[in-house]
């Protein structure tokens, strides 16, 4: 797959001296959904702002569809749709006007049929004549998406698309984004919600303090960094962990009521059978068994902590 966005050694230092990006390299593949994860202030929004034209890079290059975002901004910005993090809307405008305005700004002739389709896809058609201030937060968010799509971009940037959106709406938003991807649009989203990245993304990039720590296929990331744990609940609590179990790496938890055996992490041999046999041999009786898989969230936290 070819890169539709190519970022090379990008740095950004703001006027107040704060260095928001410290040499980021990133290739975004055409048609993928890339999630950028990172704590607040990591540089996610700055990165997006530079690609979209809201901020100027301090050094480095960004190519979109082969065009430089600074020198050839008309070509790159036509390819990009941006959904900002804040719910910034013209309160007194109607949905229809504000979405049509966005299309015009991008140099496209009016196309009522297309706008109608976009509004219908985002369940906004009934609200087309409503003023934006009459809409709920979730609807405003969808209006912002409609505005970003009005000029038929090939790349869509979503900065925290589901911040402050309830669960049902969030699901709806994910479905809408998935449909977009099916039409070949490349989607880049930033998020705090690991669940969101886990659910939608093909690849995941983790940013921290202006540096891109890694970019990986979601599955590969889960496999290499994912951990599993076997939890054995004991009928009667014990005080000392039998040495035979300790030798297998088992730990004692929950006030002596639980044995925990961690495995996975690409290590291969899980030795579950051995652990169970040893528990049996030590005469411990088990009331319940469960396994837990570390989520992307755990992976993320451990990544951000270790770096």
């Amino acid at each position: 797959m070819s890169s539709i966005v190519s970022i090379k050694n990008l740095t950004k230092t703001y006027a107040n001296g704060f260095q928001a990006l410290k040499g980021v390299d990133l290739e975004i593949r055409e048609g993928e959904i890339l999630a950028l994860l990172g704590p607040n202030g990591a540089g996610k929004t700055t990165l997006i702002s530079i690609v979209c034209g809201l901020a100027m890079p301090s050094s480095g290059t960004v190519l979109v569809g082969g065009h430089d975002v600074v020198k050839d901004f008309r070509a790159t910005r036509k390819l990009i749709g941006l959904v900002p993090q804040e719910l910034t809307t013209d309160q007194f405008e109607t949905v229809w006007n504000t979405v049509s305005f966005s299309r015009g700004l991008h140099g496209e002739k009016r196309n009522p049929a297309l706008i109608e389709q976009i509004l219908k896809d985002l369940s906004l058609w009934e609200k087309k004549d409503n003023k934006l201030r009459e809409l709920s937060g979730g609807m405003k968010r969808r209006v912002l998406i409609a505005k970003a799509l009005a000029h038929e971009p090939r790349i869509l940037f979503l900065d925290e698309p589901t911040a402050g959106v309830d669960v049902e709406l969030r699901r709806g938003m994910w479905a809408a984004i998935e449909r977009l991807r099916e039409t070949g649009v490349t989607v880049i989203l930033t998020t705090h919600y690991i669940e969101e990245a886990e659910e939608m993304a093909d690849r995941i990039g983790v940013i921290r303090k202006g540096e891109l720590l890694l970019v990986e296929e979601k599955r590969a990331l889960m496999q290499t960094l994912g951990r599993k744990a076997l939890h054995l609940e004991l009928k009667t609590p014990i005080i000392l962990l039998p040495p035979a179990l300790a030798a297998l790496g088992v730990t004692l938890g929950a006030d002596g009521r639980e044995l925990v055996h961690e495995y996975g992490n690409g290590a291969g041999d899980a030795r579950i059978g051995q652990v169970l046999a040893t528990v049996e041999a030590e005469g411990l009786s088990i009331s319940d068994i469960s396994t837990r898989q570390s989520s992307l969230e755990d992976i993320f936290v451990s990544l951000v902590e270790t770096h």
Partner: peptide, 14 residues
């Protein structure tokens, strides 16, 4: 003031 200027700045307009 409202923040909608993001759109002007990210559009292919000089």
């Amino acid at each position: 003031f409202t923040g909608t200027i993001y759109e002007l700045l990210s559009s292919p307009v000089s």
